[in-house]
């Protein structure tokens, strides 16, 4: 009986391990509005606007940010401060947005620009993947 319990727990453990996504992105509250967080170890602040539980705009403020603000949604109103997130978590969130085909094209593009500004191997591996994956 004890062996059976041990085996069952081992199988359950493995199943949980497989089902947990690797580098899963931290979640954001479901309320609409702007959220912001500081990227750990970088002078970068990410702003994300969410509507109907979906990200619609991303703004990245960094010392060498070259993105213009003309004609783009302004950061205003109440902003939920999420404190500090690691670079890996920030990259994971942006990657999730780029990969989610149901989201708007603009927010996915903004996420790509955000990834390009990160100094993350994961982000640039993704660029490599997009640009050099075998064309079908």
């Amino acid at each position: 009986m004890r062996t059976f319990k041990f085996n069952a727990l081992a199988v359950l453990g493995l199943a949980l391990l497989w089902s947990a996504p690797a580098n899963s992105a931290p979640s954001i509250d479901t309320s609409d509005g702007w959220y912001k967080w500081q990227v750990e170890g970088a002078a970068t602040t990410l702003f994300l606007y969410q509507e109907n539980n979906k990200p619609t705009h991303i703004r990245i403020i960094s010392p060498d940010c070259r993105i213009t603000w003309h004609g783009r949604k302004r950061i205003n109103g109440e902003i939920t401060d999420m404190g500090t997130l690691s670079l890996d978590d920030s990259v994971a969130m942006l990657l999730d947005i780029v990969r989610e085909k149901d989201l708007g094209k603009d927010v996915r593009e903004e996420a790509l620009f955000g990834l390009a500004q990160s100094d993350s191997d994961t982000a640039f591996e993704y660029f490599d993947q997009i640009l050099f994956a075998q064309k079908k």
Partner: peptide, 19 residues
């Protein structure tokens, strides 16, 4: 692919150059 390439304009040159 085009957007990814354009995004590299904001990337550190050392990262963007090899791509």
């Amino acid at each position: 692919r085009m957007t990814a390439l354009e995004a590299l304009i904001t990337a550190p040159p050392a990262r963007a150059m090899p791509i």
